[in-house]
Design a protein around this nucleic acid. Structure first.
Length: 563
RNA sequence: UGGGGUAUCGCCAAGUGGUAAGGCAACGGGUUUUGAUCUCGUUUUUUCUCGUCAUUCGUAGGUUCGAAUCCUUCUACCCCAGCCA
């Protein structure tokens, strides 16, 4: 496959407010030589659609300005983190099509430097060891209307602080016994500046550093300095960190850091009918509401991947929603539209009958088989596939009606006494209905109009429409998993009375144990996308075996009114 | 409640003092061997329709020849009182 280089180069990358800032930074006298960004997930859960937006912004910005983007695991809280999450995050980012600069970074690999900087702050008289308990510290901190009070330990001598901090590091205190705090301003209207914690004691082994440490830095003390170490120029995060920016800058100003990164905030992505919070997604997994982090109903990157959403669709969606500082809720229909847009041009076409009605072609000999050749895609050149046509076929039950009064525009399918086109095959006429003892239709006898494969019939045989079908004896039984929204409420986590768990859609998964797929689907590879004509987009699931094919419905086809 | 933010169509979102882009959604028409796709319209405030005037960027004022853009007022919503990130 050849890549149109000029097209790639001229692909317009959105110009959001962050890029405008970078553009003007690049004009300034001390313009950075290279734009450096970073994507800093904490490995305490799987990445979701909200992270995808951040990934696209950070990696995309680096690409746009020919800079670099680091993947840095922000692993300062070993209690909640694990290697499993690290592996999953790497897999997801790679799948999205991004690659990080050089090797993966870990905040934990800066622990020694961070410790030295903490000592430096103590030496400068800007940090102290505080023996207040968590509860006492809360009281001393005051609240929005009441200024905080200085800790009684605030004026310890530098020597004493140095000794105490060394003892903390040496493991001489129990968890919670004391902490290291910055000496800033307990009266500040910004709560983050009221002598924030820098280090706490945690007698927990770390997934990267083992038992090397029993004190761990707090996010605020680790993040900006890690950015500085990596030479990050633009540290892009979400809006809730806005109030932390003065603190971020305070550390950069008061420490001998090697670079001056700046933090910029954008609004996080919210989608209706879904939750985008690692904590809540973890609950869905832990409570077994879903089968796992990669359940196709999950808005996780791995879930969407298994569902059949493509990386291109997700990236395009992120481009569509834009980057701003206004918080809003994006309609999932926009995501679904991006998925359909990508699948429409990339999914192979195939036929699969979900609820079979037997059709017997009276003028086609028993045992005979005609091999038809159908294009894999109606518009794009994607080759052809072979399809066996025989005397006994299956069509969709709902594609047949005995009601001859149905208008041709209203019901574009098979009606007794009328004609319909079998996709890629003959035009047939329904002639007789066969019923069982319970008066249920079990079979329809039809006749084909000769020489109508690939050719329009005479006007008197004009079909009402086109329907899908499979040859009964050649069809492959398969399982179909149809997914609905995971939540019944557009804002599942906004309800004041009900927990989002109570708003889970009980019908979010429908399993069709046996559907009938055309034989070419035998070769369906996991993750390759198909459009089952007239029914929806599907993708082979990893649960597929040689005996039983399993397909996930990625998304239904858009349906116009009147169907 | 002190501080920090944000308000442009049902939902996202351009717009940066010169006369309101685009996408999604919805609704109509056309095309179609997928009721898909494609395509053409309509939907910012009113209107059955067409013209005209006016109105219009949360609100109310102001500056200006000219304001979504600048100033002031008010309102609504979001974030901060973890030894989480």
């Amino acid at each position: 496959m050849s890549i149109d280089k000029t097209a790639v180069e001229t692909t317009p990358k959105s110009n959001n407010f962050i890029h405008q800032i970078i553009d003007s930074d690049l004009q300034s006298d001390h313009a950075p030589v290279k734009i450096v960004t970073r994507f800093p997930p904490e490995p305490n859960g799987y990445l979701h659609i909200g992270h995808a937006k951040s990934i696209c912004l950070n990696f995309g910005t680096a690409e746009k300005y020919q800079g670099v983007c680091h993947l840095r695991f922000d692993d300062t809280n070993p209690e909640k983190e694990s290697q499993e999450y690290i592996d999953a995050i790497k897999r997801d980012i790679t799948w999205l099509g991004f690659s990080w600069h050089e090797q993966i970074k870990y905040t934990s690999s800066y622990f020694e430097q961070l410790y030295l900087w903490a000592v430096y702050l103590i030496e400068q008289g800007r940090a102290y060891v505080c023996d207040l308990t968590a509860e006492q510290a809360r009281e001393y901190r005051g609240n929005f209307t009441t200024p905080g009070k200085n800790s009684p330990y605030r004026e310890r001598s530098i020597a004493e602080n140095l000794a105490l901090f060394a003892a903390m590091k040496a493991g001489e205190f129990a968890e919670g016994h004391c902490s290291l705090r910055a000496k800033i301003d307990m009266q500040s209207s910004n709560m983050n500046m009221r002598d924030p914690m820098l280090y706490r004691i945690l007698n927990v082994a770390h997934h990267q550093t083992g038992s090397d440490w029993c004190i761990y830095p707090i996010y605020d003390f680790a993040h900006g300095q890690s950015d500085a170490i990596e030479g990050v120029t633009h540290s892009i995060c979400t809006l809730e960190f806005e109030g932390h920016r003065p603190l971020y800058d305070w550390f950069i100003d008061n420490l001998p850091v090697p670079a001056i990164p700046r933090q910029y905030e954008f609004s996080r992505l919210e989608l209706n009918y879904t939750v985008t919070s690692k904590r809540k997604l973890k609950q869905l997994v832990d409570l077994k509401v879903v089968f796992g982090w990669d359940d196709p109903r999950m808005p996780t990157i791995s879930g969407m991947r298994r569902r059949g959403y493509t990386a291109a669709a997700i990236k395009n969606f992120c481009e569509m929603v834009g980057v701003t500082r206004a918080n809003g809720v994006v309609d999932v229909a926009m995501l679904e539209s991006a998925v359909r847009e990508d699948l429409e041009k990339n999914a192979k076409r195939a036929m699969c009958v979900i609820n079979p009605l037997k059709i017997t072609i009276s003028n086609f000999a028993e045992g005979q088989c005609e091999l038809l050749s159908l294009p894999v895609h109606p518009k794009l050149e994607m080759g052809n596939r072979e399809l066996p046509f025989s005397r006994h076929l299956y069509i969709e039950k709902e594609d047949f009606s005995e009601d001859t009064s149905l208008g041709r525009k209203k019901f574009k399918r098979l009606v007794i006494g009328d004609y319909v086109r079998l996709r890629g095959a003959y035009v047939i006429k329904a002639e007789q209905v066969i019923r069982d003892d319970n008066d249920q239709i079990v079979e329809v006898v039809a006749s084909l109009v000769p020489r109508t494969v690939g050719a329009n019939p005479a006007p008197e045989f004009k079909p009402r429409g086109v329907i899908h079908w499979v040859s009964a004896e050649h069809a492959l039984p398969c399982e179909l998993r149809i997914y609905g929204r995971l939540f019944t409420d557009p804002s599942p986590d906004k309800d004041k009375e009900k927990s989002f768990i109570e708003l889970v859609n009980p019908d979010s998964l429908q399993v069709i144990k046996q559907a009938w797929a055309e034989p070419s689907l035998k070769m369906a590879a996991v993750e390759s996308a198909y459009q089952f004509e007239r029914t929806g987009y599907f993708v082979a699931d990893s649960d597929s075996t040689a005996e039983k094919l399993v397909f996930n419905q990625t998304i239904a086809l858009r349906e116009s009114k009147g169907k």
